[in-house]
Design a binder for these strands. Structure first.
Lengths: 151, 151
DNA sequence: CGACATTCGCAACTGTGTAGCATCTATGGG
DNA sequence: CCCATAGATGCTACACAGTTGCGAATGTCG
């Protein structure tokens, strides 16, 4: 799946920001949180719990702890969580002004999920009494890599 | 959850159509398939495996058989399958000319999923090399029932 | 009616996410 | 710099949705 085992080089400033981001939520800046946060930051796509475990490599953190770190990230607004077609959760860093509209591209071959920043689509009309809070646009198909590889 | 335990009345013609629909796929018209097909047809929203089991009531069919029936429905193009926010599959009858675009409304309160037939949204621009096969628009919020009930 | 491939129903299994609880540690006050 | 302690961690055990294998039952076609 070719995820970097560790971010190539990370400046002290970047690490600092991560710590501050965490502290600002009122939580402790633990190694587990820092590592997951950095990993998500470097990820080009939304990752599953399993992919994150793999990417952490040898210095693995406990399965349950990872779940808790991810939950915490979502709760504190630092990350967002979606379910993919294989009914597993995928996590990605929350963009600046989120919570309104979001666009994903899911590759049907490799299963990866890419977060695009396409324009928030039309606000469609809803049945009487329905109340809208979020719009999500899901595009399915093949990513560039898979299109190239297989035919 | 208030799903009808059985479709109020079903004309012989409707039952007939169901049988033909099934036969046309080259499969056998078994009671299990017929019942699930009718149920989905009468459903106002996408149903989970569990909801379908409930709706079948006393004349329950085996859990695994239901899974297989649903798989078969999806495979043969009669139904479509999506995952909801609780990471469980939901099944709904495939509309006439489907496979292009689809719009769902998920109620954050009761978890139900409604299939709207809103206009297929804008075809957004993709990164180089990406190949699009399906668009799905997901609306989240509160359905009329829940909006009315709770404030 | 009879043969036989397709379906069904059971039991056991997998994979993803959660709960409880004892142990450890980041952090703020001495 | 060290200590106390709320908050995190990492076990183990569990819950739930979905899957697999296989023998028994049954719809369909001749």
């Amino acid at each position: 799946m070719m995820l970097p085992h560790a971010t190539p080089v990370e400046t002290a400033a970047e690490a600092e920001t991560a710590v501050l981001l965490i502290r600002r939520t009122g939580a402790r800046a633990t190694p587990a949180r820092l590592r997951v946060l950095r990993l998500l930051r470097a990820a080009p796509a939304a990752l599953t719990h399993h992919q994150i475990e793999q990417a952490l490599g040898d210095l693995a953190i406990d399965r349950v702890t990872l779940y808790r770190v991810l939950d915490w990230l979502v709760e504190s607004g630092l990350a967002r969580r979606t379910t993919d077609a294989q009914r597993t959760f995928r996590y990605s860093l929350a963009a600046g002004g989120e919570h309104a509209a979001h666009t994903h591209f899911r590759c049907e071959d490799c299963g990866r999920v890419f977060c695009l920043d396409a324009a928030p689509p039309v606000p469609p009309s809803l049945p009487e009494g329905f109340c809208l809070s979020r719009i999500e646009l899901d595009l399915c198909g093949r990513c560039a890599e898979c299109t190239g590889e297989r035919r």
